[in-house]
Write a protein that binds this DNA or RNA. Sequence first.
DNA 1: CGAAACGCTGCAAACGTTTGCAGACTGTAG
DNA 2: CTACAGTCTGCAAACGTTTGCAGCGTTTCG
Lengths: 335, 335
Amino acid sequence: MVVTIRDVARATGVSISTVSRALANPEQVAEATRVHVQETARTMGYRPNRAARGLVTGRTGSIGLVVPDLENPFFGSICKGVQARARAAGYAVFIADTDEDPLLEDEVVRGLTKQVDGVILCSPRGSDEAVGRVAEDSSLVLVNRTLAGVPSITFDNGGGARAVMRHLVALGHRTIAYAAGPITSWSNRERDTALRDFAEQSNDVELIELGSFPPVFSGGTQAADLALASGATAIVAFNDLVAAGLVDRLRHRGITVPTDISVTGFDNVPMSTLVWPNLTTVDFPRIQMGRASVDALLDTVLGRRKEPRPNLEIPVELVVRQSTGVLPASRAASA
Amino acid sequence: MVVTIRDVARATGVSISTVSRALANPEQVAEATRVHVQETARTMGYRPNRAARGLVTGRTGSIGLVVPDLENPFFGSICKGVQARARAAGYAVFIADTDEDPLLEDEVVRGLTKQVDGVILCSPRGSDEAVGRVAEDSSLVLVNRTLAGVPSITFDNGGGARAVMRHLVALGHRTIAYAAGPITSWSNRERDTALRDFAEQSNDVELIELGSFPPVFSGGTQAADLALASGATAIVAFNDLVAAGLVDRLRHRGITVPTDISVTGFDNVPMSTLVWPNLTTVDFPRIQMGRASVDALLDTVLGRRKEPRPNLEIPVELVVRQSTGVLPASRAASA
DNA sequence: CGAAACGCTGCAAACGTTTGCAGACTGTAG
DNA sequence: CTACAGTCTGCAAACGTTTGCAGCGTTTCG
């Protein structure tokens, strides 16, 4: 019922070796045989058994993708990019969701490594040691995180943070609060550092760091009151969800964005144009990152690249919308 | 470097058959041997080669999941549920994104069937014929769609639509518009039919059907003006994204939701609590659906169920938030 | 005490494919 | 006509695992 290479061989009257070659290495068989075999294979509906092929070649023809939370559209986009590029290269994609759990992550990755040619590990929550150990015995590409000796792809968080600061300063803001994300988040550290450095270097800008909030809507709700009390005229949120929470809470407090206070996010998730006012944010080209990570993985898997490939940083872009505005004269005076 | 069953056999001093059995069918080997083998295998870091196993058993230990758009959080949630349940059952998940393209869908599914034990086809865009052909020669479970003879899981769209109508009618609304989704969408047809039936059966309610809009934010923008012109006092949107677009456009036109007009969505995607006012919508338990679809697939794959399993309908729940309100007295009079 | 039954283990075949090697054939040159 | 190169094809081994079958030792029962 399921057609194997033998059936094709019998139907065409050649050996299975010839069939195999006609399909996988067409240039090794004579023109006539080749077309005959290919034709027959097609009409018979032959599909090579990947398990059998994998057994002898040692390649599985698939890659693994590990993300912390599939429900988060940020990772959904990356998946989309990965999936598209992988298919174009003839690879299938195994997916795994770690539920933001470092232990589960480790287990999942180890289970996956044996059945794939390489793994893309996205925003890993595990320790450097754990990630490093995995990298030792499997092809690994890190996304949204760096680790010495392991190829990785990151967004230019620092550049994004600086662009936000430049934008706010240009609008007249001098007292700016940062509603930070999880301290375990590599992205948060990158952004935080860049913001602080920027403030230090331009000596009339004050950055108020507001501690750490969960990177979700309610995190913004929490941060809003603190931000308000701090006297800042602009709030940089760790991401768009926090920014949305901020805006919502501020509205309840009777504060209007951007008239009274400006708010920015990070990521440019689709919802950032749904909240009112539409969020000024930093766009992270996530699909592109997904594609790039597959390319990087294939580089190492296929040995296309000799020298160890360090980190690739993907540029990001400030998207100015309605949640940021010029500093009201009254506040400027009082500052 | 990679440890095989042979290495474990040599290390423990038993044959490979015994190792295989000790790990896969523990009850077939003696207690002492079993613990010895299991212990050694663990310390050596042995992981069975799935390709080899698959070759002899005919099972791959993985399932395929095909969705129209990974970026859409609706499908992201389903993926999450599928992935979690599949892992719990010892299966890995191949994922494929069809970009909403029926042709790509067909190709992708066919390519997948050979390397998995079964496929979960989510919101398929292909024709009944195309889907039916695939179902013939592979284990298939349909999600969000029914097809004679193929096991499927759907949400109770009709029940959700009726709940929305009851809610609006209770608030005093008698002229209700439906901003329909894509005509190719099975869910849209289900909702539309239920809404229409409901209106017909309660003879003082008028349903105005507003044609078809893309199921995204801008679809709502388009629908808003038509809805306004129709004189409806409440608008049922095909989904939350359309509802969000509606609310946004209405605000620009100076109409307040829900004071002047009520709006509802479907799906209860995470953003529905981000837009202001928070959307009244119908919650679809997507993670649960993901899990249920794996169960259904495993039923057929493992032959756990004899009689053909028809459709399983998952109940949904109306979530009342701030986008619906009582019909203003002025409008009631004018109606 | 002998035979049967049982529990445990090992042998070896099989799964479907790729690939190194060698053989068969054709054509060309000496 | 022989030798040789070159092109194409087939043979057979190998990949790592599962599993039917048989063998072995021990126990149980008559």
